[in-house]
């Protein structure tokens, strides 16, 4: 017997460990750097190391009305898109996992398509449809785009959970006297609830962050990512951007942690749905 099995689990070779550690550093270090830049005193360039540290940019950012309105719009869009995606994605997942029907594969392909094809395609498709139909850009054109690619996130989470939930539970519930609606309320919902919550949070995060599709479906309105894009292309006050960037990293951290705890026993968080 090989020595690496003595303590019950195999051990990775040193080379493999180094490769993995290097990969992790590559993934995490750039995000950490943002935290340092949020405190820099340097205004004009991205100088490293920062010449000095200050917290004054937090106050400056806090007082900026344009950031607040962008943030509000992003939250509203994300909330409504997530709600729509939850309904559409869950129903679709229930249909696909609950039965075998002709065209089932087509449906799952159709759901995946908006994320399998580049976002720019979704964006320009919607824009050209709006222009063909003379639909003016509005809050709702943004939601239309976001809900389309949020469906898949909810769908993936729900399908994974439906697969784990024994089909005979529904039969058992009906056998014991619950009609369809009671079965949904007393058996299905409690069993898929956490998966829906996880899917909903991830959909929210996805919508909150989306920029590529949004550039095509927003008119004059600015979501937070659009605000950041503007700052990246035409910087006005770099330190304020640094602060907003750090805030966004922190905000996305929470739903990921929560989604992890909600779904860790069993199915993967369907992060693939991005």
């Amino acid at each position: 017997m090989r020595s690496d099995k003595v303590d019950g689990g195999p051990r990775a070779s040193l080379g493999l460990k180094f490769a993995a550690a290097g990969g992790l550093a590559f993934l995490l270090v750039p995000l950490l750097i943002i935290f340092v830049y949020a405190f820099t005193t340097e205004e004009k360039s991205f100088q490293w190391p920062p010449p000095g540290l200050t917290t004054k940019w937090f106050a400056v950012a806090w007082a900026r009305a344009d950031i607040w309105s962008a943030l509000t719009l992003s939250v509203q869009v994300a909330a409504i898109s997530t709600a729509l995606a939850l309904i559409l994605g869950t129903l679709c997942a229930a249909a696909v996992s609950g039965s075998k029907f002709f065209g089932r594969e087509v449906v799952s392909l159709l759901v995946i398509l908006p994320i399998a094809l580049p976002g720019i395609i979704t964006g320009i498709s919607l824009r050209s449809a709006f222009s063909l139909l003379d639909i003016p850009f509005s809050f709702w054109t943004i939601v239309l785009g976001h809900a389309t690619f949020c469906i898949v996130v909810v769908y993936n989470n729900a399908v994974a959970r439906f697969r784990r939930t024994s089909g005979s539970l529904v039969e058992a519930s009906m056998d014991l006297g619950a009609d369809g609606f009671q079965t949904f309320r007393h058996v299905i919902l409690p069993n898929i609830g956490t998966a829906l919550l996880a899917g909903g949070m991830l959909a929210f995060a996805l919508s909150f962050d989306e920029v590529i599709v949004t550039t095509f479906t927003a008119g004059q309105q600015q979501t937070l990512p659009l605000w950041m894009l503007e700052e990246l292309i035409r910087p006005r006050q770099r330190p304020v951007t640094n602060v907003v960037a750090m805030f966004v990293v922190l905000v996305t951290f929470l739903p990921i942690l929560a989604a992890y705890y909600l779904t860790r026993d069993g199915d993967n968080v369907a992060g693939m749905g991005k």
Binding site: S166, S168, L169, E171, A172, S173, M174, D175, L176, G177, A178, D179, Q182, V187, P190, N191
Partner: peptide
């Protein structure tokens, strides 16, 4: 007549106990 209107109950092969 759907199962919930039949005064018939079933013991399932996999027991189908509600995990929640």
């Amino acid at each position: 007549v759907p199962p919930y209107r039949r005064n018939v109950n079933t013991v399932f092969q996999d027991y189908a106990l509600f995990p929640h």
